[in-house]
Amino acid sequence: MLGRTANGLFWMFRYLERAENTARLLDAGIRLALTRDLVTAEEEWRSVIAVTGQKRLYEANHDSYAGADAWNFILRGKDNPANVREMFGAVRQNARMARNAISGEVWEAVNESWMRLEKLLARPIGQSAVGEVVRAIRLAGTLVHGALEGSMLRNEGYHFARAGTFVERADSTARLLDIKYYLLLPSLNYVGSSLDNGQWDTVLRSVGGERAFSWLNAGRMDARAIVEFLVLDDRFPRSLAFCHGALRDHMFALARLHGADAGSNQLMREAEINISDMSVETIFEQGLHEFLVQFEKANGEIGQAIAEDYRFLA
């Protein structure tokens, strides 16, 4: 496979994942804002924008964190080059570039989703429509992943696609936790106290994990359990441990196909050791923020090493 094609597949799935994660984040934000007073709602939108990494850009062009301003900025803002519409445009562009490396079904799933989203995102989105838009973005991800699972040859292209998914997802979960850590960090001292469960619930919702978490924890809600769930629980498909486990599998599959252990695999092993040695206590001792910063850095380096090992760029 061409290095450029591998790059296209990797980024196609990174952008797809990013769009989907952004939709989840918005979904949780909308829900929290609906149930809260204006100040809390604005606070929530501020942190949502922060998670997307566009706080400075947003504040340069907007005076307040009104809900509709925030979600329009995130979904389709012309002043936001990283809006969801652009992300999905990049998904399709990369799919076109890698067209002969994806199945017709994957291509059609991408193209149809793109057409639907283009239509939905063409005009400013009001309160009554935003839920539908967010759902459509999430479904687009589901559709494309489904087509990939059901129709793609398990060759290197498949593994590049999956590697892109998990590098992005790991980054996204880590970033979300990092921005929200102020909710979680002091709470060790507050164990058992009535800290705002609604905001923790939002953290879980942002990764679509609220039901899974309460199922596993029988309704108990504390910082320790949430961090353990989102970082270390390898049963949850958006936890850091799960993402890196899956990433490792796909990277090793790539190494097997290429008959060589690449530099990226070495980095992957090191990152894995770092996680598997951790308990939630050591994470809090070390500092959640420090842990997450280190994780994000390692994750980014793995992505770069993949690009180098497999000659993504000239």
Binding site: M1, L2, G3, R4, T5, R99, N100, G104, A314
Partner: peptide, 15 residues
């Protein structure tokens, strides 16, 4: 389309 249907690589000059 043709590259895909032939099972050929689709290259640009930079490749």
């Amino acid at each position: 389309f043709l590259a895909d249907q032939m099972g050929a690589e689709l290259v640009e000059a930079s490749d």
